Computed example of a mutant assay.
Amino acid sequence: MHGERLKDEGSKLQVVAAGATAGLISRFVIAPLDVVKIRLQLQTHSLSDPLSQRNLQGGPIYKGTLPTLRHILRHEGITGLWKGNVPAELMYICYAGVEFTTYRSTTLLLHSAFGEGSLPHGVESFAAGAAAGAAATVATYPLDLLRTRFAAQGNEDRVYPSLRRAVLTIRRDEGLKGFFRGLGPGLAQIVPSMGLFFAFYEWLRLPLGRLELPLGSGDAAAGVVASVIAKTGTFPLDLVRKRIQVQGPTRLRYVHKNIPEYRGTVQTVRTILATEGLRGLYRGLTVSLVKAAPASAVTMWTYERALKAYIELGEKGLDNWLS
């Protein structure tokens, strides 16, 4: 199966395989930081808040990445740091495959519509990245919601004992729309975030590639810088998405038992600003940026090398064997 190629960027099969490989490896590496980020995002108060503003009966109160890691290890064991990893792995594999495929297809479409090289490179990368992020978000959103809910539950009074039970329970109690809670802020975040990410990545990849950097190229460094820039500007929408994802009949059964009831993106933002201040929209930002660096570096570094390996295998007839 030798699909149409974009220069030396590989066939459709090779792009999907490389994207899935990158997503799988990246997710496993950063899973503990992802759990920490979700716990911090769902927390309505921190240790630095005045005592009068805290609800001490609302579950654990975390402060910082390392204390949260230690708290989870002490109370939930090492497996607590990989809660939600199964739906997350499935999400990352599917997300990366859809993302890179859509990015490539959108680039080809833009070349066909406007001519290759006619659009500024940054505009082309932004448009392709935004389209890729939106398509991948919609396609994998139910898995993202399941990942959040598993990461939010403790060992006592577990909300969902298994992935299968979670799917059946949400379908029964919340309907199909229950799997898409928070999709609005998710799309509002991912379009500019991924657009900026791919634009900065493509802009930085070649110049950084000429430098003598660890691991042999500037792919990883470009991925880190691009991810930090993109995520910082859109982080509040990510937090809003997490808060809405745990709404519904199980809202008060997670580790944080004082999660307020939110309805819609705008109302959620207003409530957080009124009760937690501007800082409330950035809970977990530090660990998110810490997570973004290795996640993006591993993803892009693995993708570039996996794609190269699959192209080499394809030249030996692997594509025909897989067809």
Rank of each mutant, 00 (worst) to 15 (best):
E4F: 05
R5D: 00
K7S: 07
G10M: 08
S11A: 13
G19C: 12
G23Q: 08
R27E: 01
V29I: 07
P32G: 01
L33P: 00
V35Q: 06
K37S: 12
R39Y: 06
Q43Y: 01
H45W: 12
S46L: 12
D49S: 11
D49E: 07
L51A: 07
S52W: 11
S52D: 08
L56K: 03
G58M: 02
G59T: 01
I61D: 03
K63Y: 14
R74K: 15
T79F: 15
T79I: 10
T79C: 11
W82N: 09
K83F: 13
N85V: 00
L90P: 00
M91Q: 13
S105W: 14
S105G: 04
T107Q: 01
A113E: 06
G117R: 07
L119P: 00
P142C: 01
L145D: 04
G154P: 08
N155M: 14
D157P: 04
P161V: 13
R164K: 14
R172N: 13
R172W: 10
K177R: 12
G178A: 04
F180T: 12
G184H: 11
V191L: 14
G195A: 06
L196Q: 04
F197I: 03
L204K: 04
P207K: 09
E212N: 12
L215V: 10
A221I: 08
G223L: 02
V225R: 07
T232A: 15
G233A: 10
L237W: 03
T250C: 02
L252H: 05
E261I: 15
Y262G: 09
G264W: 02
T271K: 13
T271A: 14
T271V: 07
I272T: 10
A274M: 10
R279M: 07
R279G: 13
S288L: 13
L289H: 09
A292N: 13
A292W: 00
A295I: 06
S296H: 08
Y303M: 10
Y303Q: 07
R305D: 07
A306R: 05
A306G: 04
A309L: 12
G314L: 10
E315G: 14
G317K: 09
G317A: 11
D319C: 11
